[in-house]
Amino acid sequence: MRVLQVQKFFNKQRLSNIWQTIGQKSLLSLLIGAIALFCWVAPAWANLDDDRYDGNMFVIYAGNGSLVPPSTSLADSLKQQRPAIVVFYVDDSRDCKQYAIIVSRMQEYYGRAASIIPISVDALPVKDRYEPNEPGYYYQGGVPQTVIFDQEGKVRLNEVGIIAYEKADDVLREIFNLLPRSESVELKRRTLNEFNTELSQ
Rank of each mutant, 00 (worst) to 15 (best):
I60F: 03
L37D: 01
L30F: 11
M57F: 09
E108F: 15
K79S: 11
R190K: 12
Y137I: 01
I18S: 02
N11W: 14
I117S: 03
A62V: 09
Y130A: 01
V68M: 13
F58P: 05
T146M: 04
T197V: 00
N177G: 07
L157R: 05
R129W: 04
V86E: 05
S184H: 09
N11E: 15
S77R: 03
R112C: 10
I119A: 01
I35S: 06
N47Q: 12
Q7S: 00
L74I: 06
I148Q: 05
I116M: 05
T197S: 01
P125D: 02
I162T: 10
N64I: 08
Q145I: 03
R190S: 13
K154F: 11
L48S: 09
L172R: 02
G55I: 10
N193L: 15
V185T: 12
Y89N: 02
V147G: 01
V147E: 00
A46Q: 09
Q98S: 04
A34I: 15
D150Y: 07
S182M: 08
Q7A: 00
R105V: 02
G161W: 06
D76Q: 14
E183P: 00
R2N: 15
D50N: 14
I60H: 00
T72A: 12
E159T: 09
L4I: 12
K8L: 10
N17F: 06
K12I: 10
T72V: 13
L179M: 04
I22Q: 02
V185F: 13
D76T: 08
C39Q: 12
G141Q: 08
R190H: 11
A164T: 08
P125F: 07
S184W: 02
I22K: 01
L199F: 14
S66L: 04
L199S: 04
P125N: 06
Q7C: 04
Q5E: 12
V171T: 04
V160T: 10
V68D: 03
V185Y: 11
P135R: 02
T72K: 12
G136A: 03
G65E: 09
V185R: 13
A42Q: 14
G23T: 00
R112V: 06
P43S: 07
M57R: 04
